[in-house]
Design a protein around this nucleic acid. Structure first.
Lengths: 215, 215, 215, 215
DNA sequence: ACTTAATCGAGACGGTACGTCGCGTCTTTAA
DNA sequence: TTAAAGACGCGACGTACCGTCTCGATTAAGT
């Protein structure tokens, strides 16, 4: 189910009949997020979402094919709030974004939704692709940006020139992203301990100087 | 559901009544893993597991309260196969365990089951606790062991003496575990790229020497 | 369970939503009767009825709260086939209806179902009420009709005028109904002997002339 | 299952091993009657009876093969209390026994148990036979006795002599028994109205003088 | 006293049916 | 044509009892 059933931007010109309610769209997505917080993924039902949104089940299915699609759309927007403020040095930049991401994952709807859709994606390639494009890849910009800033400051060596260097840089971005996002997610969801300033400090130290520097 | 319904280690001394069948335990867990491979998390049903195990559904529910608890126990044992072979230096040891863990997560039953139960655990504290005790905490041994070995070899500084030092060491183990496990899980399940020797090399380099060394 | 879950007579005017399928109603009641013949009360299951009716189990439960209620409704209609043909004199009329009722109770589905629901009704007031309204009270018409006819023929004295007379008539109908129905049921189900013309003759003689006349 | 699994009168001579507990027998039958009152036939479970009797389920099944057998044994004794006191005339004798039987059937355990086993017997011939021998036929003595008394008093004509007359007398007893017992059972369990002196009077009048005499 | 063996309680076992819940679809009336 | 309402077929759920089967612990009668 890659093809969207739903595109609120198309005005559906030249069509007859009663138009779809834009308000229903908003109410459904809001209800989905709220229900996710209250019930979690497993207890979330389409009927419940419809009831909370004051809408018939038919109206949901007219827009989204199933629970996964609905939830991905409902939560994708939540991840766009991450930013990389310039705190003057690479270490501070890292700590800042780590704390932001940690705070985001501490919120119940974010935590629940992210894990649920990722879990579902292990058996649904289309869903995995959708998550990557809608959520994950968009956040790699933070790593790219932080890296560029650090190179300009001289905290990191510049990329090697040429195609090889570009490839190495891409791979480095991927690696760093997996390490940062993975560590935060694992600490929050598996170890279930908080991503607080002390941990952010330890983590950024490890990331910058390695195990030897950790002491 | 804090109290365990199931504890195969206690021999139930002095208790009356017919004892639980140890063979049923084993058959159920085997059937769960097999069904997980064939059907995936979403299609896995208690009835199917019972049928495959040649056991009544009641027998499952007598031991596990629901699908999540059962799958955690069924999958937990898979993680016990991880080892830390002595490859002579810290870097090689890390690469070895990273590759092992990566291979484990590449198997469908591990991947799908682990993500699903972690997702459910975001709204189920008892389940989270069970995951931690049955899976996560038991694997921290690998980090502890690798650290000790490296200290004996002189690759890492020894722990500071006294209570403070012990605390710092515990925190360091937790941090390192979150970083290693988090990175592997994230690469496998979110980025959906393989944990191969090249990546293991890059990752262990980053972990040992930090971003500067990655250059 | 005083409120009816099921009322096929109300056309639900002005209500919204998909209406209940009248065909499903019929199919379910037919299937219930057929299954009753094949399986008997004890082996009759809701799932079996649903399967025979080509209907989902939920559809049964949407209409009837349990097996008893369903069977009462399924069997009630069978009693409507009883008639009081005009055979010219009271005694013949009685013999006719006695034989009809005896034949009805000889059929397996009637016998097994009636006794089972009556047995359940000893501890279920709602069920007893349903039996009375769906089966018993509707057949009192036969007694009322037979009595009127006999009065018109002069075989029985007319009702006394006034309220007292009406009350006495009502009580007489109740008494006669208990005697006739009770005797037939008892002979069939407890004594397990047939209601044949000879017995019908003896019984109607007893009923008309009393023990002295039986001599 | 006509053969008894259980015979408390045999001392089991010459057998070794622990003897059966006579107290358990009594406790089980008492518990069965009590549970029948509280729960009714449908909700009565072997486990419940065992728990109330302070006995293991095994102990029940060692003595009775199933619920039916147990309940028949538990309730048969209740019907032996009926008597036919000599009140001087046939009509009074009838009213007396009608009221006795009515009072017996008004008690919850009697009512429930009788209907339950009769219902079950519609699909179990052995059970029907057991009921007839243990309960029904034993009460026909009341009709025989009352008839003889009335004949001695000259209220009823004597039996015709010879084999034919004996047959006729047997059939008359059967008919009268079905009418009396049937009417009382029907009024109590189906019409669910009380068998009080007024009704007993009307009924005995009908029985003696027939419909014409009923007025 | 010591064996022998049937009984006891407790409770796990393989089954069957239960009545409920959520899914995603279909069918109605109203706007 | 869409909307709300709600019935539909389907399939899994988790529970309740069934009647059977181990268990270890009693409890006599026969040695």
């Amino acid at each position: 189910m890659v093809a969207r059933m739903h595109d609120s931007t198309s005005p559906r010109k030249g069509r007859t009949g009663r138009p779809r309610s834009a308000e229903a769209d908003r109410a459904i997505l809001d209800a989905t997020r709220a229900a996710l917080v209250d019930l979690g993924w497993g207890k979330l039902t389409m009927g419940e979402v419809a009831a909370r949104a004051g809408v018939a089940k038919t109206t949901l299915y007219r827009r989204w094919a199933n629970k996964n699609e609905l939830v991905v759309d409902a939560v994708a927007v939540l991840f766009d709030e991450l930013e990389l403020p310039d705190r003057g040095c690479l270490k501070s930049d890292i700590e800042g974004v780590v704390l932001q991401f940690g705070a985001l994952l501490a919120r119940p709807e974010t935590k629940t939704a992210l894990m649920a859709v990722v879990a579902e994606s292990t058996t649904d390639n289309a869903l995995r692709e959708r998550i990557r494009s809608a959520i994950v890849d968009r956040q790699k910009r933070l790593v790219v940006l932080g890296r560029e800033r650090a190179q300009q400051r001289g905290e990191l060596p510049p990329d090697s020139p040429g195609a090889e260097g570009a490839l190495a840089a891409t791979q480095a971005v991927g690696l760093i992203f997996d390490v940062i996002a993975g560590a935060i997610v694992h600490r929050t969801l598996v170890s279930s301990e908080p991503v607080d300033p002390a941990w952010a400090h330890s983590f950024s130290t490890l990331l910058l100087t390695g195990l030897v520097g950790l002491g």
